[in-house]
């Protein structure tokens, strides 16, 4: 357990009148790709917010979250600001709202780049930042970077926006990347590209991945290990291959069966 990048133990999230996540425990090793599966409202996104210390004040966390050796729950805001970006970065579901509508895309990527360079005490001048932005745009395979850095979010396609959001997250050079339903707002072909891109990038850069989705097929493609959540509780945890092909829990079985029926319906089989 000592070597783990993220360790969540007995995490319970509750508002004064409702328990939202109960007694959740899991861990992610450095460089590991971990999938969190569940229907909407199962507490997946809340869990990811808790990991970054961004819960609303009305939600009380209990238990323990250790990220890169530091306790998140109860940590002062100042320490959290330093950890965000350095230890963890997030890609959100809807790239249109996750990007500032009034800021050119290039400047949005440059922000975290500059912060990282300053924090590490490296040259954070205009040229150095521009070079890094250029590299990031190539890494997420965006065409026409010259035009793109001057564009506003509404001027580019959904897939391109999500690539920019990924570039912003990578700009922090985090050790853990949280991808919270990063493909849900995209069309199917774009989804596949983004999933491949995220998988390839975290593998190349040795970043651990917490991939959150309700889509079993997508999680199966990305994750090495998965956890299935329902109503704020963990139902089943294990290697992706095993959980998604030979599920032990009845709820997971019904999820897998439903996904299979859906696929068959799409392919026109009875």
């Amino acid at each position: 357990m000592m070597g783990d990048l993220l360790t969540v133990r007995g995490l319970t999230l509750a508002t004064p009148d409702k328990v939202l996540v109960e007694d959740l425990s899991f861990s992610i090793a450095p460089g590991e790709r971990f999938g969190l599966i569940g229907e909407s409202g199962s507490g997946k996104s809340l869990t990811s917010l808790a990991v970054t210390g961004l819960l609303e004040p009305s939600i009380r966390p209990a238990g323990s979250i250790t990220l890169a050796g530091e306790e998140i729950i109860g940590a002062p805001e100042k320490r959290l600001v330093r950890m965000r970006g350095d230890a963890v970065a997030t890609v959100f579901q809807e790239p249109l709202t996750a990007l500032d509508p009034l800021m050119p895309l290039g400047r949005q990527i440059a922000g975290p780049v500059r912060r990282r360079l300053k924090r590490k005490g490296q040259d954070a001048g205009r040229a150095a930042v521009a070079r890094e932005v250029q590299t990031l745009l190539e890494q997420v395979r965006l065409p026409e970077p010259e035009r793109l850095i001057r564009s506003y979010p509404h001027e580019v396609s959904g897939g391109q926006r999500q690539r920019v959001a990924i570039a912003m997250a990578l700009a922090c050079q985090p050790r853990l990347l949280i991808a919270d339903e990063p493909t849900t707002a995209l069309d199917v072909t774009t989804q596949a590209e983004i999933v491949r891109l995220i998988t390839a990038l975290v593998e190349d850069l040795g970043i651990a991945l917490l991939f959150i989705s309700h889509d079993l097929a997508v999680v199966g493609q990305v994750a090495e290990r998965v956890m299935v959540m329902r109503d704020g509780r963990s139902i089943e945890t294990g290697p992706a291959q095993q959980v998604l092909t030979r599920p032990e829990d009845s709820y997971t079985r019904s999820l897998v069966a439903a996904a299979r029926r859906f696929d068959q319906a799409l392919e026109g089989q009875p």
Binding site: L54, R84, G85, D86, D100
Partner: peptide, 9 residues
Amino acid sequence: YITAARVSG
């Protein structure tokens, strides 16, 4: 995008 900015520190 405010949450996104906060997440990136």
